[in-house]
Simulated assay, not measured.
Amino acid sequence: MSISEKYIAELYNKIQEERPIIHCITNAVTVNDCANILLAAGASPTMAHHPLEVEEITAGTKALVCNFGAIADYEAMEKAGRVADELGHAIVIDPVGVSGSSYRREKCQTLIENIHPTCIRGNYSEIRALMEHCSTVTGVDSGDKNLDTEAMRQYADKYHLIMIASGEKDIITDGTAIYICENGDAKMAKITGSGCMSSVMLGAFLGTEPSVQSAAACCAFVGIAGELASEKTDACGGGTMTFRNLFIDEVSLMTQEKMSRCKVHI
C-alpha cells in the first residue's frame, strides 16, 4: 500500500475526531513537549508514572508509550504494559539510551518479550544496539548513518512488531514490508525531544490504526511538520528554540495540502 496525503489526512482527522488518550511514561526532559505535541495533533495525553496507578490509568487509554529515558519508572512500564497487552492496546517502546547502557538494553529486551509491543522506534544507533546486543554509542544521539534493513526486517518478524529506525531516512518495517520515509529536516536533531515526540505521535497514529502503513504515515507527518517549521524558522531568522515552537505549531496547523510533501516509498 502506498502512503498518500489522503491516507495521512484520514488518520489525522480520525485522531482529531476521536481524541484518543495516550498514556506516556516518558522522561522529565521531554514530558512537556510530548504532552503538547499530542494536544496539537488532537489527541489527549496522560503522563501517569506511579506503579500503583498505571494499570488503572492505562486501561482507559488507546495506546501506551514507554520511553527508556524514564528507566527509573521501569516497574510502571512493565505493569502498564501487561495491562495494555491484555487489552490489545497499541504499545510503543522508545529505547532511549540503549546504545550506551547494557542495563537499559537488557531491561528493554525483557520488556519487549513480556509486553509484546506494537512498535519500537529509536535512532539508528539504538536500533542497532538492540538487534546486535551491543554498545554502539554513548549518549542518546545517533552515531550510525547506515543500518541493515534486512536485519531490521528479521527482528520485526521474530517479535511480531513494527520497527522504526529514525534518521536522515526513516526505515519502517513490520517483518514483511519495508518503507523508507525521506521527510524531515536536520534541525529536528538540534532540539531535545524530537525523537520522544515522534514516539508519542506513533502512539496516537497506532492507537487509531495499528498497522505498518499507519506508522509510515506518522513518520511522514512528523517529518513534514519539521520541514515546514524549518522553512519558517529560516524566514524569520530564528534559532533552535524558535524551531521547537514552530514544529509543534505545524502539527496543529497541518492540512492535506501540506501532506502532499509526503516522501514515503517501499
Rank of each mutant, 00 (worst) to 15 (best):
A9Q: 11
E10G: 06
Y12E: 00
E18P: 02
R19K: 11
H23S: 05
A28N: 13
V31E: 05
N32I: 15
C34R: 00
I37E: 03
L39N: 06
P45M: 07
T46Q: 05
M47Y: 04
H49W: 10
H50K: 14
V54Q: 09
I57Y: 10
T58S: 12
A59R: 14
G60F: 11
V65F: 07
A72K: 14
Y74V: 08
A76R: 00
A76H: 03
A80S: 14
L87N: 11
I91M: 10
V92C: 10
P95C: 12
P95W: 01
V98K: 01
G100S: 00
E106Q: 08
K107C: 04
K107F: 06
I112A: 08
I112G: 00
N114R: 11
P117S: 07
P117L: 07
P117H: 08
G122R: 03
G122M: 06
S125P: 01
M131Y: 07
C134T: 15
C134L: 15
S135L: 14
T136S: 03
T136P: 02
G143Y: 09
D144L: 15
L147M: 11
E150L: 13
A151N: 09
A151C: 04
R153L: 11
D157F: 13
H160K: 12
L161Y: 01
L161A: 00
L161I: 09
M163V: 14
I164D: 07
S166E: 10
I180Y: 09
G184Y: 02
A186H: 12
A186E: 14
K187H: 13
K187C: 04
M188S: 07
K190P: 03
T192K: 00
T192N: 05
G193T: 00
G193C: 03
S194Q: 06
G195V: 07
S198P: 04
S199F: 05
V200F: 05
M201L: 15
A204P: 05
L206G: 04
P210V: 01
P210C: 13
S211M: 09
A215T: 11
A215E: 08
C218E: 13
C218S: 10
A220Y: 04
G223I: 00
A229E: 08
D234T: 12
A235K: 12
C236N: 15
G239K: 08
L246W: 04
E250G: 01
E250T: 08
V251F: 15
M254T: 06
Q256T: 12
E257N: 12
R261D: 02
